[in-house]
Design a protein around this nucleic acid. Structure first.
Lengths: 155, 155
DNA sequence: CATGAAATTACCCGTTG
DNA sequence: CAACGGGTAATTTCATG
């Protein structure tokens, strides 16, 4: 199965179902998609092998593990310093995501921390690592976060 | 189990393991955390019931489902228009996440689209919905996205 | 798509700290 | 009160034809 397009309607329905519930049983998937269990099993395995399904994760409430504060940090790295930035940031455990971007910034990261003091500490570490200015946007409330495949078009 | 702090070291190890592999078997979790299977089963169930584990998701490659382009859009809504913004945005399927934020913007959203034309269309819909200016940051590359609990501190 | 075998889960128990 | 270890039935997954 090529990555680009080997996905039919049945695959897309399976992906939507698994994006909504990553632990859904094959029998449940079979019922919601109208296929038999073994067909679902074969399709899901192929989707996993093809990398269409990159993995499965439990969604953990950040507040429940003592990190109620989230923020986005834009990084404006100089061309000479851009190399290795993501690798350095990955070493900071409070950094939960890192993207290279085009726009005003060069990188965007999401962080998850316990309190204002931890926020200060993480920002210091980031600035020390990238040696450049940052722009912070605090998260007040997460309204929703969903997969691109959760409500995928037909085609 | 209260949301705030009923989590001991064993719970945190379970959460880290499930954040890394949401379909991990109870027997595998028992082995990596050094507990017996029945204990793992009881703890995981309690974590689910307490909402510490909010759910499970399959990670779907956006490119594989025909949406290779991601971007962040900052929204600068007027005080009078802020109400209902997230609800409106949730109705736009290309909007994959929405946060209320403090900083320069009022809302931040992440979008996932097929091509430049779709991007234009989604931005038009967002601007029509919120009646305000936007600031876009295109994602060039996703280096990593992980759970806040993946590498959680001890305590 | 169907089938049988293997693995996993869910739930019981009594015992222990 | 919770964890352990064992045991079993029901379910699910897996590898076939």
């Amino acid at each position: 199965m090529a990555r680009g397009e080997g996905l039919d309607s049945a695959d897309r329905r399976l992906l939507a179902a698994l994006a909504a519930d990553g632990r859904a049983k094959l029998s449940a998937l079979a019922q919601t998609t109208g296929m038999c269990v073994s067909t679902v099993q074969n399709r899901v395995r192929k989707l996993e092998e093809a990398g269409v399904i990159a993995g499965y994760r439990a969604l953990v409430d950040p507040a429940a593990v003592g990190r109620p504060i989230s923020a986005f940090v834009e990084i404006y790295a100089e061309p000479d310093d851009e190399d290795g930035v993501p690798e350095i940031l990955e070493g900071i455990e409070e950094v939960t995501a890192c993207w290279s971007v085009a726009g005003e910034a060069t990188h965007l990261v999401k962080i998850s921390v316990a309190d204002a003091q931890a926020l200060d500490h993480v920002l210091s570490r980031i600035r020390a690592a990238v040696r450049t200015r940052t722009r912070i946007t605090m998260v007040l409330r997460t309204h929703f976060e969903r997969s691109a495949a959760a409500t995928t078009p037909d085609q």
